[in-house]
């Protein structure tokens, strides 16, 4: 049985600095990398058929750092007699390229936000490519429905808070993941809980973990994210007891408690709008006035149901981005 795992690492310089200097349980990047490498090795130790790829979201760009399926050049560094050569290769590839890329960043670039969703998309593309290869290699070359890989999954290790402007791309990634039968696991290492990652994990049957004991990172990673989805049927992993289902509005990219949903295309807005910016549907003036009148100024109240605008509160529905 082979597994496929893509790990997406958030390498936002700003937020790692914040995490390293946190007053309570600081976690620095080097300490994190040591434990991450042990986790990656533990995953590869499971079987030599386990496919692994590591993606990193650097400030302003996302890159693939390592992939076990690409033919590597014969290792240049001679590994000693005390380590398993593939592990050595993996560790070198991940750690040295992270160091290399972080050092080459200029001060101004360091401030740029990390496109976590870019790295996630690359991971999904990678899994899609493996699925295609898998299908051409086996019986299913022509026609027929593509066979999904057994248990592909993505693990996102994030330190930065949600970037609200990436709500739509993240939602789109979640839908592609569902289609590819990919499980998305997410771990928020520090900072506030991530609304989007919670939803991603929930919608793909994965597991979301907010790391509370940062000193026990490796143990948490091992117990929660090492078992493949099939093993989770026997040994359970932590699941969320409550999921923050809030969505970001399309107009200002704010996460909203109560939104207004276009009845035609299901776009979400934080305030009633006369014309839907996505599908150009015009709403009657009367409805707008009624919705505006009933908008709670401060405390949230159940929003009224209009003819064209349907209120959206903390519910399980989510918008279909155009």
């Amino acid at each position: 049985m082979m597994d496929t795992l893509c790990v997406v690492i958030d390498l936002s310089v700003k937020h790692w600095q914040r995490s390293a200097t946190a007053s309570d349980q600081p976690l620095s990047l080097p300490a994190f990398l040591i434990q991450l490498v042990a986790f990656l090795n533990a995953y590869s130790a499971g079987s030599s058929d386990n496919a692994l790829a590591v993606f990193a979201a650097f400030p302003g760009k996302s890159l693939m750092l390592y992939s076990s399926t690409d033919t590597q050049p014969q290792s240049t560094t001679v590994s000693g007699p005390n380590s398993y050569p593939p592990f050595q290769l993996l560790d070198d590839a991940v750690v040295s390229s992270i160091i290399h890329h972080l050092e080459s960043l200029s001060d101004s670039e360091q401030e740029a936000p990390c496109p976590l969703v870019g790295a996630l998309t690359k991971a999904l593309c990678f899994i899609n490519r493996l699925t295609l290869d898998h299908n051409t290699n086996t019986s299913n070359a022509e026609g027929l429905d593509p066979i999904a890989l057994p248990d592909p999954r993505v693990l996102i290790l994030s330190v930065s808070p949600d970037i609200t402007s990436s709500y739509i791309p993240i939602m789109n990634s979640i839908f592609s993941a569902q289609k590819l039968k990919v499980t998305i696991d997410a771990c928020q290492l520090s900072g506030p809980d991530s609304v989007f990652l919670q939803q991603a994990a929930h919608l793909t049957g994965g597991s979301y973990l907010y790391l509370e004991r940062r000193d026990a990172l490796l143990q948490h990673l091992t117990m929660t994210f090492l078992p493949s989805p099939s093993v989770r049927g026997a040994i359970a992993v932590p699941t969320q007891d409550k999921v923050d289902f809030r969505a970001a509005c399309f107009c200002h990219k704010n996460i909203v408690d109560i939104g207004f949903v276009c009845s035609v295309c299901l776009s979400i807005f934080c305030q009633p709008v006369p014309v839907c910016s996505t599908c150009r549907t015009k709403f009657p003036m009367k409805t707008l006035q009624r919705l505006n009148a009933s908008r709670p100024p401060a405390q949230p109240r159940p929003a009224p149901i209009g003819t064209n605008g349907v209120s959206k509160a903390n519910g399980s529905s989510y918008g279909t981005p155009a």
């Binding site: 042990a38 090795n41 130790a45 001679v78 000693g80 005390n82 398993y84 592990f87």
Partner: peptide
Amino acid sequence: RHAITGGGTTGSFGVP
């Protein structure tokens, strides 16, 4: 643990 983290002095992965 040694196998996963590397290190040790056993030389059990073969001396090149």
